[in-house]
Amino acid sequence: MSLNKSQMVTLFTNLVRTNEYDLTMYGRMMAGKLLGFYHPGEGGIAPGVGACSFLNKDDFFSPHHRAHGMGHMLSKGIDLKTYLAEHTGKQGGCCAGRSSFHASYPAFNQFMYSGFIGYNFTPATGWGWAAKRAGKQQVVMMCSGDGSYGQDRAHEGMLMASNWRPPIIFWCENNGLAIHARTDDMHPAEHISSLAQGFDIPVEIVDGQDVFACAEAALRAIEHCRNGKGPFFVECKTTRFREHDIGTPDLIEDKPRTEEMINELKQRDPMVIATERVLAEGILTQNEIDRIKDAAANEVADAWAWADAQPKAEPCEEALLAAVYAP
């Protein structure tokens, strides 16, 4: 499935925007202007953009926590200013400033974020079940890292998807690490996707540093699911350039990752790979790229200005008590 020019421009633009949001988070956290955790995306932002840039608004999706799913969400069409407000405890936050870093956008069929790794696999089964029953050709984009495949939930979700054939795409962003643990130390096979083969779910493995390759795989998986052919598994081989989350030492097992290791990983920077390709294929000129970058910088600055202008969410206890149960 080859991409047309407009699709490539969309992907490139979403990648640049994701990168721009991601980079500001680091500075904000270091300046004490961000609540909760932040899991920097640098080096691993292509899969989320590839997965979500061509979803329909009513497709269900669950972002991976890397870069806090911002690439997934903006690619799906969500305006991230309310996410930034949430991350700073503001009233305009997408979760009313109650969650620190969770995201919930029901209008985009994004219903839950769980700080428990792997907890989205089983509700995804329910979204898939609902999608199948509604018969409106919706799909479920279930994104996660490799580490979440240690959870029984992932296995139960795949088992039930394999039985019921709902339109679920298991989208694994395998960066080779889970905090300090090496993926190849925690999982038996070279590929996480080998697990899916045990459930008879078709698999594709893709270069997770290449946003265009990710998107092509996503489009194939989406088409498979929309055509009622059951679940699909895509494993994106990706990486991360920074520590697991800001403030946690950047170790591999018990040893720091060295500068040489990181430099080696940076040879395959998703931003560089995408830029070279759009230039080489004449999809964008350097001028157009600069304009996309400026627009992204302005978008992110505006989003932060909006979030910063929101009042802190500090409701009274009675208001919170009234918010626990649905009417």
């Binding site: 029901p106 089983t122 089964t125 329910g126 979204w127 939930r153 039930m160």
Partner: peptide, 11 residues
């Protein structure tokens, strides 16, 4: 249980 949770999200 997750199936129920997801289905509840979806109405």
């Amino acid at each position: 249980y997750g199936t129920a949770m997801g289905a509840a999200h979806a109405g």
